[in-house]
Design a protein around this nucleic acid. Structure first.
Lengths: 227, 227
DNA sequence: GCTCGTCTTAACGACATCTTAGCGCGGCGG
DNA sequence: CCGCCGCGCTAAGATGTCGTTAAGACGAGC
């Protein structure tokens, strides 16, 4: 998910952190002192830095300050020092968050998520790619071979439902419920009409293969292209 | 220095916070419950939100979640609840930091500085340039081909919202919330009227291309000029 | 208290979209 | 063989959304 660099000299802590972070789907690298840490920062370009203050060769605050000369990388300081004065010093020298040991694992992960969320403003929007077809759920945009396809709200909604569960069959009831709400649970010819429109637009946009398939008596499914 | 909104219902706390924050050179506004808080958020467009969780009318987490529908505003939660589970919940619903009461004043200020520091790089360029169009967020000024265009507050606010998220679609609800506050969530013809005024003024100022586009049934977006 | 600018509300035409209806096709079972 | 059902498709009236303009309501400043 994200690449995280841990700078800490205690093997117990780094082992624990590695386990924790990899369990959360992150990619972890470890450096045992400031010198190696700074080297690794430039080399592996991580998405976040998890930093201990008590390093053998240099104070952690120095690491943050050096880093801030050239990078906006989010930094979470993890330290045994609970003195508010230390916290203020670290935060004011460029750290984004400060957690004292012993820490609560779920809280650490949540704070990491908060930092990562903020630093990726160009949010990894859910853009589903299916061969030549692309469905951007957030921007309400659909493209075929990189060319935008103008869809009405209902058409987009139908396609989005299928794309979200690509490959699986969605029943008539499911689609009607999702697009029109509970009142239209039995008006299954709505589906026929709007799927006709949708298929025509996709065809004219250059999608040669019919990827919207009907399962007679059941519902519809979106074919996933062999990749 | 920065404008900070405090949402808390205990007068003792708000008095203390106001003193503390104004002492640090910030501009402070206070709201005593969630409803007034959301209204104030839309109205005064602060730079940061300081939020208590135990509000009389609604839970603070709900406030964050509602806010995150339309804003990236940094949020620091200040709560009496020290249970890690509460922290994780608040952080995962959009809060950026979490501090438990009683808090250490210098630490609070340092954490605020850390949050504000991270949000200012976007504010360092308060002048957005989009082809012939220029939007100065700080000075509330708009120019077309270097000639100023007089806009009313609402018109500017709409344009600023679009410009801040140039290229992306902003839903009716998003725009209404951001400009009029939570009460006007369904009055979507406000948008039609004021966008008509806005488009006319831009047209008469010499903007030949229609850069404010409507996404039928969804909302509006600002076209980014090909660069 | 008046004037001016701005916001709200209302009304209307134009246009796109949705709904409804109808027709042809093919598979299936009686 | 023939009627039935589900499906794809198209056409046309109904509905909704949008853009625009104008008139009344409101508030700020003098």
């Amino acid at each position: 998910m994200s690449r995280i660099l841990v700078i800490d000299d205690e093997p117990q802590i780094t082992r624990l952190l590695t386990l924790l972070l990899e369990g959360a789907g992150h990619e972890v690298r470890v450096a045992a002192d400031a010198a190696h840490g700074l080297h690794e920062l430039a080399l592996s370009q991580p998405d976040l830095l998890l930093l201990d203050l008590g390093l053998p060769d240099r104070d952690g605050v120095e690491v943050v300050r050096a880093l801030r000369e050239w990078s906006q990388l989010p930094v979470l300081v993890l330290s045994a020092r609970s003195d508010p004065h230390d916290k203020v010093a670290a935060l004011d020298h460029g750290a984004d968050d400060y957690l004292t040991k012993p820490f609560d694992a779920p809280e650490l992960l949540a704070r990491l998520r908060a930092l990562l969320r903020r630093v990726t403003p160009a949010e990894q929007q859910p853009v589903l790619a299916l061969g030549k077809l692309t469905v951007d759920l957030a921007a309400h945009a659909v493209t075929v071979a990189d060319k935008p396809v103008p869809l009405t709200p209902i058409e987009f909604s139908l396609l989005a439902q299928l794309a979200r569960h690509a490959g699986r069959v969605l029943t008539h009831a499911h689609l009607l419920q999702a697009v029109w709400g509970p009142k239209a649970a039995d008006q299954s010819h709505y589906l026929r009409v709007h799927f006709a429109h949708l298929r025509r637009k996709l065809r004219r946009a250059g999608l040669d293969e019919e990827i919207i398939r009907n399962e007679p008596g059941i519902g519809y499914r979106l074919l996933v292209p062999p990749s």
